[in-house]
Design a protein around this nucleic acid. Structure first.
Lengths: 131, 131
DNA sequence: ATGACTGCAAACTCTTTGCACAACA
DNA sequence: TGTTGTGCAAAGAGTTTGCAGTCAT
């Protein structure tokens, strides 16, 4: 986990931002979560951090390019550590999310002049267990 | 617009649901909107309908397969009349949404056993005007 | 030391719910 | 006429904001 802290520390310093415990802890947790996190889940795991801090830190981490906001279906914002551009298959019944690799193929469909910053693919349906 | 009303009337009757003015009006508006609608936009155009009615009607129309809920980035639910499965290119700056046709190509990436009910593709970036 | 960051609490937005009235069948 | 659907108002989630105290530099 130390490598993670160093990475974030470097990015923060580079932008003149302070290195604080909440930032390191939230970053660690997002990076350690295999798939996706909500602000609420983070608050469950870090109860001593206020929602305000969690949200503002997530916003900062997004600006730093370390975390990504993913649109979700239930009106809840889902966050994701930035690794590779990818898509999600979302089970309508149990909510399970699977990463898929279709985002790249989708890029070819952009309208003329559109500068793609990221491609999100969501497949909604029933996972193998629920089907 | 009469064809629309007839279509919805048929679907409603088929399911034993009543045909009401709010349902017809909301359906017309969603169908008439070139791209996507939020519940709030509908309420602006139909101020005499209560939010509760708008939401419950949208939910009904979704169950009837006439309208689709689209995940959005700003924590606002976006609705879309059902036509062809498609994706969206969303401008990060001005919020403009363009339909794209990439959803089909994305289907091939589903995990094993996953039953796709719909495929959503979102490209986030800057549209030609904002770039 | 000083300025940025955090926590607390309240506010805000979007959406849902409960109940009485109105409208469809 | 008998339900079902609607409006109103309040409640409920999730997220944002303001301000005073705390901590990194």
């Amino acid at each position: 986990m130390d490598a993670l802290d160093h990475k974030l520390t470097a990015v923060l310093r580079e932008r003149g931002q302070r290195v604080t415990q909440p930032r390191l802890r939230i970053h660690r947790l997002v990076a350690a979560t295999p798939r996706h996190v909500t602000a609420d889940q983070l608050h469950d795991e870090l109860p001593d951090l206020s929602p305000a801090t969690i949200y503002s830190t997530l916003e900062l981490l997004e600006e730093l390019g370390v975390v990504r906001r993913v649109a979700s279906l239930e009106g809840v914002t889902v966050y994701d550590s930035v690794s590779e551009p990818h898509g999600h298959a979302v089970c309508r019944r149990c909510g399970a999310m699977f990463d898929i690799a279709a985002a790249d193929t989708a890029r070819s469909a952009a309208p003329a002049g559109f500068e793609i910053e990221r491609a999100e693919v969501q497949l909604i349906g029933l996972c193998a267990r629920c089907a």
